[in-house]
Amino acid sequence: MVKINGEIFDIAGKTLADYLASINYDFKRIAVERNGYIVPKAQYGETVLIDGDIVEIVNFVGGG
């Protein structure tokens, strides 16, 4: 099980890029943290989610 933004998902084994694509996040507007560390954008495709991972995705919106 993988916890993403507080919700539990049965997606261990998938890559982070797979997950992000499945929920239509715009890659240019997000920052992703996994187990306390930022995931560099270049590594989304090779980052395989494993059981127990805690992921936080910040999806920025405009305005300031």
């Binding site: 240019k28 507007r29 997000i30 920052a31 930022i38 405009g62 305005g63 300031g64």
Partner: peptide, 12 residues
């Protein structure tokens, strides 16, 4: 910043 893409770029 005001633009979302800029916010994400700087954060990353």
């Amino acid at each position: 910043f005001d633009v979302a893409e800029g916010k994400a770029m700087l954060t990353n």
